[in-house]
């Protein structure tokens, strides 16, 4: 298969910080319309992997392909405009804007200075915001300032900001961290729903949650991928049990 058959095609990706290889020869192929999860102990290089994909860090070697785009050479904003977006580990929303405004700012129109000046809040925008707010369980909080949301709601809002931006590839860094059991369940439902017409790469610690959502799993350890496959096969892998699950 060629690189464009995958939603995201990461091959032999390496980044080295002063000789320390945080990500070492990693290859991950995310299939279209799936939820792909990367697990691994602290310091395995998972977040660095996302930094590399979304352009925050530039790789030392290797390829990251999305459609025909070579993400390793692009600026952060261009990567997003190509259709790859990312949720941060700590919920990053705009605290002084309302939920409505948070979503409106992420609407994929008026991204230039003049475009933003001329941007009009028309019915199409309003409808889309309501639609997304429904999906992320925040339709009754539209007028609440971001800072007053609970931790879990902030996580949802950030996912909603990615949804409204109409991205084909979504990267989520620990989306259920700090969530209650009910919220985790709702998030799993949400991810299943949104993965129907886009692909999702998730970094996660919570094994039950991973079991629930993952189509495929990669296990990382000390910058390297040590196992790949479905959750069932990965869980039985001895190496994985040794470095991670056994603890």
């Amino acid at each position: 298969m060629s690189s464009t058959d995958y939603a995201l095609y990461i091959e032999n990706l390496t980044v080295s910080f002063d000789g320390f290889k945080a990500v070492d020869d990693v290859s991950i192929y995310v299939e279209k319309g799936t939820v792909h999860v990367v697990i691994g102990p602290n310091g395995a290089g998972k977040t660095t992997l996302l930094d590399l994909v979304c352009g925050k860090t530039k790789p030392t070697a290797g390829k990251i392909k999305f459609d025909d785009y070579d993400l390793t050479t692009m600026h952060e904003q261009d990567i997003v405009q190509a259709g790859v977006g990312r949720k941060f580990q700590t919920p990053s929303i705009y605290p002084s804007l309302t939920v409505f405004e948070n979503l409106e700012v992420s609407y994929p129109k008026g991204r230039g200075v003049w475009g933003a000046l001329g941007f009009k809040r028309d019915q199409e925008v309003i409808d889309r915001i309501h639609e997304v707010a429904d999906m992320i369980y925040l339709s009754d909080k539209l007028q609440t300032p971001g800072e007053l949301l609970s931790h879990g709601q902030k996580q949802w809002l950030e996912i909603g900001m990615l949804l409204i931006a109409d991205l084909q590839m979504i990267l989520l860094d620990e989306p259920v961290a700090g969530m209650s059991v009910v919220e985790r369940k709702q998030t799993a439902d949400l991810l299943r729903k949104i993965s129907q017409n886009r692909s999702i790469l998730v970094i996660e610690h919570d094994m039950n949650f991973v079991r629930e959502i993952a189509h495929r799993v990669n296990v990382m350890h000390q910058g390297k991928v040590i196992a790949e496959g479905s959750m069932e096969t990965v869980e039985k892998n001895e190496k994985v049990i040794e470095v991670y699950l056994g603890h």
Binding site: K56, E76, G85, S106, R111, G112
Partner: peptide, 8 residues
């Protein structure tokens, strides 16, 4: 967050 929402 703004930068990673596609804005320069």
């Amino acid at each position: 967050r703004v930068r990673f929402s596609g804005y320069d």
